[in-house]
């Protein structure tokens, strides 16, 4: 993994010695995907080139499933983050693009499944980029949902927000709020039920 000193992250200074070429002497632009993957753990410029090269494709793959531009963009970012974390596990048996495609598609499908169980601000089943009426409806739903969340009792709202927005695990929420795990589970369940009831008109 990349060695970094424990200093706050900041803009990289324009170091003349910053490596812009791969190990073989080629520029990153001329490197193959596999060369970029192999260099990426030690050099973020290489990973940046990989992102630049495949970002439209990854976004398209996510967009195909979720049909919502902002969610697809988030998923595309998440895809590259997960790919970076999994660099060590990529053996090169498959094409890099296929690997990214699989990550993006799985993330997008999971997002759709989760959002069906718990509708969030932007409805995944409604293409908000489509007809203006659909956009207005999505916005209205977003306003209603936020209001419904705000109306939840504090004890239900906090674990729900930590779970759905911050994507913490039940264990993490229990630890952070100093509340027993089963209590957290129950509160999140109750919060979801309450929201479903509140949002009944949108179904």
């Amino acid at each position: 993994m990349l060695q970094s000193s424990p200093e706050p992250p900041q803009e990289e200074p324009a170091e003349p010695s910053a490596p812009t070429v791969g190990l073989s002497g080629k520029s990153w632009e001329d490197s193959t995907d596999l060369e970029l993957v192999r260099a990426a753990a030690e050099n973020l410029d290489a990973f940046g080139e990989l992102i630049r090269r495949h970002q439209d494709f990854v976004y398209g793959a996510a967009m195909r499933v979720v049909r919502n531009p902002s969610i697809a963009e988030d998923l595309a970012q998440d895809t590259f983050l997960r790919a970076f974390r999994a660099l060590d596990g990529f053996r090169g048996d498959a094409q890099v693009r296929s690997w990214l495609y699989r990550i993006a598609t799985n993330l997008a499908k999971n997002a759709v499944t989760r959002r069906r169980e718990f509708p969030t601000e932007e409805g995944l089943d409604q293409p908000v980029f489509g007809h203006p009426t659909a956009r207005l409806e999505a916005h209205s739903m977003s306003v209603d949902l936020r209001a419904a969340i705000d109306r939840l009792p504090d004890k239900l709202r906090e674990p729900l927000v930590l779970r759905e927005y911050d994507e913490l695990s039940y264990e993490e929420i229990a630890e952070r709020t100093a509340t027993p795990l089963n209590t957290i589970r129950t509160r999140i369940l109750r919060a979801r039920r309450a929201l479903r009831t509140e949002m009944e008109d949108w179904r």
Partner: peptide
Amino acid sequence: WVGGLDHDLVEPVVQMIRLELF
């Protein structure tokens, strides 16, 4: 899918990775 994305993701993703490494 070329050109479908409005924003370049390189900078935000690399920043997140830097933060994570930090």
